[in-house]
Amino acid sequence: MSHARRSVLVPSVMAFGFAFLYVPILAMIGYSFNNSRLVTVWDSANSPTLKWYSALWRNQQVLDAAWLSFRIALLNATGAAILGTLAGLVLARFGRFRGRTLFTALTTAPLVMPEVITGLSLLLLFVAMEQTIGWPAGRGVTTLTIAHITFSLSYVAVIVQSRLAGFDLSLEEAAMDLGARPVTVFLRITLPLIAPAIVSGWLLAFTLSWDDLVISQFVAGPGSSTLPMVIFSKVRLGVTPDINALATLMVLTVAVGVVIATVLLRRQERRRERDLRLAAGAD
């Protein structure tokens, strides 16, 4: 009796949950093709239309902001991937050392720290630094990039750490035992093993930066408005159809990327399964 109940409860909550996650996005995509300026009135005579997409294309403010966000996201992803990989390596492989507790605290706290606190504190630091050492002069790409790296390196570290945790430490010991120096061990064993984690960490860091509003608001200077900042200021004034178009483009880009990645992963998994069958027959 209760078995039957649960077997209905879980799938129905799941269905509701997924509908909850996707209906708003789908509605937004639909309205991006609506001709009416009144976002919620469907003008069936003249829709679907691509006019909001072309309006977007002509909006220099949005394009500039997108270009700025793109550059910062690239810089951030690369910086965060390097620092995060080092941090993940330390967390997964370095055992105990003096300051480990502090190190762990500093790498995991940014995952949950409210953005208003991080943003405000970083801005105060940048101001104080400019006062005392004259760098960073003013606020813009540099401060934005530093701020973004600071919160996104933690995500990379966690991803790299959990990937490394899946591999036995004896792999690196074996390489060392076979005569490889630490740098060789890292380049030939550790790095190839964690490469997938670094790639997904890089992509996540890119997205986090591309997406960030609150911290950017604090540390951006005049004339360095990122895309989320521009969207936010438009959205605060109300719903605007060209934002629907922009959102649709962004969602589709991500969706296509994720679908491609999933297909690739599936293919790799299938090959693996075939190999395992091959191996099973050998003894």
């Binding site: 591999f167 036995d168 004896s170 792999l171 010991e173 074996a174 390489a175 060392m176 035992d177 076979l178 005569g179 490889a180 120096r181 064993i189 190839p192 093993l193």
Partner: peptide, 20 residues
């Protein structure tokens, strides 16, 4: 003498074969 400089080799319990 570091592990990589010793005239000693080890066969690990898990074999530690490089998967890649």
């Amino acid at each position: 003498i570091a592990p990589y400089e010793r005239p000693v080799n080890m066969m690990f319990q898990s074999y530690a074969l490089f998967p890649h």
